[in-house]
Amino acid sequence: MTARLSMRTRRSPVRIKSPFNVLIGVLSVCAGIALWQYAASELTSSLLFPGPVKVAKALSSRSGLDLIGALGTTLKRVALGFALGSAVGATTGILAGNVKWLRTLVEPYVHFLRSIATLAWAGPALIWFGIGNITTEFLIFYSTVFIVLLNSIVGVTSIDEQRIQMARSFGATRLDVFLQIVLPGSFGYVLSGMRLAMSFSVATAISAEMLFGTNGVGYVIYESRLYFNFETIFAGLVILGVTGLVLDKIFTGVQFGLFARYRQGR
């Protein structure tokens, strides 16, 4: 007859990190791993689909260490392009947010360029800069800059006009307003743009390594397919997942912990 949904007929918010939920999560993951092991050993050829045990072995073996080394290479790559892209994006974005004509000028191009998949530029970039780090950094830069730029613009434009008026009424100069109101107010947005761009820049780095790289996690994973080395592939995927998770957590930690007072909208 009529539905009796036990959830959500109350107005109380859903608690996210209650111990009950954590328990369910842990149980679920254990069940998942067990299922994975079962599927890998019973249902398919374990050559094609390694179970968790094999993957764990691969991680803790020599190739595991190699992967960690490759991860370092990849991360260094990402760090450079990401830092550059964020710096340029944030500066341009904050400027554009402040200066109306700059913003109207810049925005359409940014939107257009951003809607082009980064890796499409690998074609021309390889011809111009050759196979090497410059191309990779260019691509990583490209994947970062527009996202940070647009978020920075939003950050500046979302600052409540009232705040600026308030500061002015206290006699603040334009520079004061910029340093004391605009910068802190948009900082949270810049961070969230960076957080968003982070996963894209890693993905771009991996794609570039797969396409024309000679080192890094992407290269190792893609190369391993030539030898049907599924253990290494899966180990690499796990490492990527963990890396992404850790990086994201670092960003949320910075956003909501260290720089919590700069949270969006505060």
Partner: peptide
């Protein structure tokens, strides 16, 4: 609670990596 750990892990693996 059951699906969250999977989603918040697998989504960080770049899709292209799965191509291998």
């Amino acid at each position: 609670a059951a699906l969250a750990p999977y989603i918040h892990f697998i989504r960080f693996i770049p899709p292209v990596a799965w191509f291998a």
